[in-house]
Design a binder for these strands. Structure first.
Length: 293
RNA sequence: GGUGAGGUAGCCAAGUUGGUCACGGCGGAUGUCUGAAAAACAUCAGAUGCGUGUUCGAUCCACGCCCUCACCA
């Protein structure tokens, strides 16, 4: 085996990512970077994958630039990292073949990680039969079940994950899946730029501005349309913004409550994003206002 | 002004027939993370309106005060 060959391979797979919490001007920066070199743009955003969910999720990039990873499923279709990965990966490899730089923009950390680090179990599909069987199980019953099929996995989980039904079900699913040794070791040479504010107290005002803009752009009408078209029991509509809009539309919440709720949810989300990205290897760029880098 | 109801954390809200650290939920803070990730989950912080009395002991009982709501004037 020749190390040089591996290096050569890595050099052929460059990836530039722009990540960070919501409302920091990631899209603007990505568009700026895209102008400087032959490139394609890929969105890493777990809600912009849905067609017709445009205003509330903030699909605000110019119509003249194409962006991949957006509008890949309908709101009533299931979607996960794997769906997104499969939708986006062909374009990334095509870009490499053409000698073009893929630029990934988005705040969904897991999606970016699927590209930069790889997810070993990404292609073990959901086992719907198992999932519906396990639906009523308590946490301790799920732990028992996992212990029977993969005790090491259970003991390796931390306090938080061990109490998380969703993670336990997935662990069981992986344990009993027919093992395909599909090692997805990443060969990408990725650079991840993260945008953050110097002062965390800037998020609130940035988010407030954004929420008002989306309301002015027809967020309520969009939510009404989706509600009448699909009904309210869809995971896609549990997204921030939609969930307060739904209760507002049903008359269970006043307009100011709805706006407050929306802003508060976005703020909490931004904090969770910061926590996630702190653990990843990100080159942080601190900004004062969106797009002022 | 009169009558009735009520004042428990930033908000909502249990409860103690008087007895160690007062149930929860939301919100908040800090985190976890390999197919739901704008998700799910974990840990932590925070309260008995004010005063006096009865009592070994009061958030609970009594009295006064302040405040809120409803109805009557």
């Amino acid at each position: 085996m020749k190390i040089e060959n591996w290096n050569l391979k890595i050099k052929q797979q460059p990836l530039l990512c722009v990540v960070g919490p919501t409302g920091t001007g990631k899209t603007a920066l990505a568009l700026e970077l895209a102008k400087k070199q032959p490139s394609i743009l890929i969105s890493a955003d777990s809600r912009q994958v849905y067609r017709g969910m445009d205003v509330v999720t903030g699909k605000d990039h110019p119509h003249t630039t194409h962006i991949y990873g957006v509008d890949i499923v309908d709101p009533d279709e299931p979607c996960s990292v794997a769906t997104w990965y499969d939708a986006v990966m062909p374009h990334i490899t095509a870009a490499w073949d053409d000698g073009v730089l893929p630029i990934v923009v988005g705040g969904t950390g897991l999606y970016v990680k699927a590209l930069t680090s790889g997810i070993g179990t990404l292609h073990i599909p959901p086992n719907n039969h198992l999932r519906s069987e396990l639906v009523g199980y308590s946490v301790s019953e799920l732990q028992d079940k996992l212990y029977r099929v993969d005790p090491q996995k259970l003991t390796s989980m931390n306090e938080s994950d061990r109490a998380n039904p969703r993670r336990l079900v997935r662990a069981i699913e992986i344990a009993i899946a027919p093992k395909k040794l599909e090692s997805r070791i990443s060969l990408l040479e990725s650079k991840v730029i993260g945008l953050r504010y110097y002062d965390d107290s800037n998020y609130r005002s940035a988010i407030e501005v954004r929420v008002r803009a989306r309301l002015a752009a027809g967020a309520v009408e969009e939510a009404k349309r989706l509600l009448s078209q699909y009904g309210e029991n869809m995971t896609s509509l549990s997204a921030i913004g939609y969930r307060s809009l739904m209760t507002y539309i049903k008359g269970e919440m006043s307009e100011t409550e709805m706006v407050d709720r929306w802003v508060a949810d976005e703020l909490a989300y931004a904090k969770r994003q910061i926590v996630w990205f702190k653990k990843q290897s990100v080159e942080w760029q601190f900004v004062d206002k969106p797009g002022t880098i």
